[in-house]
Amino acid sequence: MAKTVLKAGGRFKSAVCDTQVMVIKAPAGEYALSCGGADMIAPTATGGGTLDPAQAGETLIGKRYVNADESLELLCTKGGKGSLALDGVALEIKQAKQLPSSD
């Protein structure tokens, strides 16, 4: 797994499915971000490879994904079949802080 620096505002896409994410916040340092078992790539890069059936839990558009201590937060901007992981550990869906609609 290739490690990369994650920065708020950064975008990645899955190499093996339709998933796309945007980084909302990220810890300092280098990490391996994967989707469907393959390293995520730049939005303009060309993917390839096959989806790992063990990593095909689906990523949902509009959901936010976090690691255990919530130091990493990703927003799924396009859904896909693969599931997200950071350094091989699966990310979890974060519940939005629901506010009454104010505008």
């Binding site: 909302i24 936010r64 927003l75 939005a96 802080k97 629901q98 506010l99 609609s101 104010s102």
Partner: peptide, 16 residues
């Protein structure tokens, strides 16, 4: 800035 407005939207509105 984009970060101000997007954190307001992503933090308080549920997508769809």
């Amino acid at each position: 800035r984009h970060e101000n407005l997007s954190s307001y939207i992503f933090g308080t509105v549920e997508f769809a």
